[in-house]
Design a protein around this nucleic acid. Sequence first.
RNA 1: GCGCCCGUAGCUCAAUCGGAUAGAGCAUCGGCCUUCUAAGCCGAGGGUUACAGGUUCGAUUCCUGUCGGGCGUACCA
Length: 574
Amino acid sequence: MNLKQLLDDKVTAAMTAAGVPDAQAVVKQAQRLEFGHYQVNGIMAAAKKQKTNPRELAEKVLVQLGDDVNLCLEVAGPGFINITLTPAFLAHTLQKLQPSERLGIDEEPGKVIVVDYSAPNLAKEMHIGHLRSTTIGDAAVRILEFLGHQVVRANHVGDWGAQFGSLLAYMDQLEKQGEKPSSELKDLEKFYQSASALFRTDETFAKKARNFVVKLQSGDEKCLALWKEFIAESTRHCQAVYDQLNITLTTDDIMAESAYNDDLPKVVEELKQRDLLVESDGAQCVFLDEFKGKDDKPLPAIVQKSDGGYPYMATDLAAVRYRTNSLNAHEVLYFVGTQQLLHLSQVFAVATAAGYISKEQRFRHLPFGWVLKTDGTPFKTRDGADVKLIDVLNEAVDRAYKLVEEKNPDLSPEDKKNIARVVGIGAIKYAELSKNRITDYIFDWDTMLSFEGNTAPYLQYAYTRIRSIFRRENISSRDISGEFHLTDEAEIRLAVKLLQFSEAIDGVIEDYQANVLCNYLFGLAGTFMTFYEVCPVLKASEPHRTSRLLLCDLTARTLHRGLNLLGIETVEQM
RNA sequence: GCGCCCGUAGCUCAAUCGGAUAGAGCAUCGGCCUUCUAAGCCGAGGGUUACAGGUUCGAUUCCUGUCGGGCGUACCA
């Protein structure tokens, strides 16, 4: 149930009845309190087209809308219609919403949607740069699944590139020296750096490394065994991060680059059959008119390199082919950084030309910016190394623990630990999700862990305040029944907010901007906090007490569900 | 050079296919805990929306140009 949509349909119909062709009501949530709850913005544009006076047209539309006891309608300004929902209508609508497990969110006919996200390079440990794709992608996955879609999580990890030569050569060397690589592998990042350093300084080692790449890709057994050992260890590292971050990805969702290995020659062959391939400087390329490089020269999509190797264009095309042909995806979402914009538009264009993508299948790149430090430079350590994601997560939990101890020293150590985990991790994820996806994002401990303002802890705290009310009287949320009676302004404002949850969800899905949901939840929590200050619940007389308990319960469930869809947990007290 | 993205309060960010007086938080200042958790609430100050034009009844939003920043621009991913 989407109130805005209902009103839009109603007003649009009234406009049509008033003689407006192709009527569009354009109903929005009102931007100011004095304008009511919703406003109709479409009258003025329609009047313009018809060359009539907008206020007069608005009046005509009002007549068509007729008497509706649920709505107060008013023509305002240059030709808006302001809509105020009556307390009785709000109470009635909440009454219907109250028992709903889904909080008024309709289930959609399920589509198969592949979500490509996280995708770390297994040669190294996950670093701060993976935070965005992983959290945003996982939120999208959770929301789409809640809406009833059949979501395929696709973790397109990098496990097949040239850098694995050095790593395998290094493992091999350690083994020959009688050492167990497994203990060295515990710090993957150090391992990677040691191997890379050898590659740069030791010519014999470098030769061996290159040799290992060739052996690996040609299926040498010993080499594959080493590789598998390495990948297994690296995968464990990733999973530890996902678990700590409360990400729904598991090892089953890994569809690695190497998995497409056998498909790569087929892709090249199919492109050739479609007459798309051109050899240029020894490389197999697809040239499409819309892609231009420097000096307006045609820009190729290189599918096979002059040395016979396959670049990631080939792998990505194979992935498209698999997702459409085998997974029968209706929609595929790529949560991949903005720097891949050209690459992915080439992938989609070539795949379309090759017939891998049909007209009904929708491929979308949902790009995002960089994670920066407070001084605006890339988020790296002093010596320019990537910051390990696991270290960042641990620091968040440590910081949160100190805060819990400060604010609520009487809690048990186990409770404190759990709260620190939920709050610390929530803070990191929310800081990320609550900002615009496209722009760069400044990672600032002080902002996200000050735990004030538009942060996860603020929302989590609002939730605990509600739970505390129920705990105090030992009431379960299931126990309360009765009717909504909305009299106080704070109650009415909370009621309207609660009814707008599905509008927020719809808003996120339009462009996968999770911050739309964050903004909604922050608004809901703020509205609740005000209500909490001015409307006593337990001490109120009936029927207000029951009505307020119902409002509290619905708010708690909405906050819980909303945070859950963002991949953020709640606690009962903090 | 060309292409894409970005530029909003001191800082971090909002602003729902163009809507009414551009909103929050942080920081600053002033109030509120014998009353359901003060990680809270209420209030004040703070803006030429980078700049210049244009379209429109109406522009942070659309168009053109300028400046500033980021990314990309043939065999790394």
